[in-house]
Amino acid sequence: MAHYSTNEFKGGLKIMLDGEPCNILENEYVKPGKGQAFNRVKIRKLISGKVLEKTFRSGESVEGADVMDTELAYLYTDGEFYHFMNNDTFEQIAADEKAVGDNKKWLVENDICTITLWNGSPITVTPQNFVELEITETDPGLKGDTAGTGGKPATLSTGAVVRVPLFVQTGEVIRVDTRSGEYVSRAQK
């Protein structure tokens, strides 16, 4: 794999750090007028998801990480693996529980997800920003509450629990923001 000098650092560059592939989020060049130059870098570790700050001496070089994002459709889970398919080539890939993590509650069949591959294996699965899911269980709400004040918990078909306004009922399909886990609206019919 290629090595990158600090001069090539920029948001989105994938590098190896402590044996883990990382994504550079921010890179700031620090150079006191009369002193040594440094690169102050904000990094996301792609497996643990940890965000940390690291300082490099300018001119240092680090190993690149063979990481790529691919858009795949979610098919099903067999309990152990989650199966995805490339809709153009019909090639299938299985991601384990660790790669899917908490995002399993946003996986909707046939929805396109972003799968991050490191050396060809999935390390993270990112659902679309918005997904539509059916409410399987929620307390019957009071009629007339349209302002959505307070709200109530609702369990969705994937097991996810979100707060919804009182007027939304079991059996309805709602739109959820997967980044915040918040209710957005009733799904468009």
């Binding site: 040594q36 440094f38 940390l52 700050e53 490099f56 001496r57």
Partner: peptide, 22 residues
């Protein structure tokens, strides 16, 4: 939390400058 490889190898003045900058 200034995380840099082998900080002890920086010169005394570079350490001061790094602390000053951050």
């Amino acid at each position: 939390n200034i995380d840099i490889h082998a900080p002890e190898t920086l010169s005394f003045d570079s350490k001061l400058q790094l602390l000053f900058s951050y």
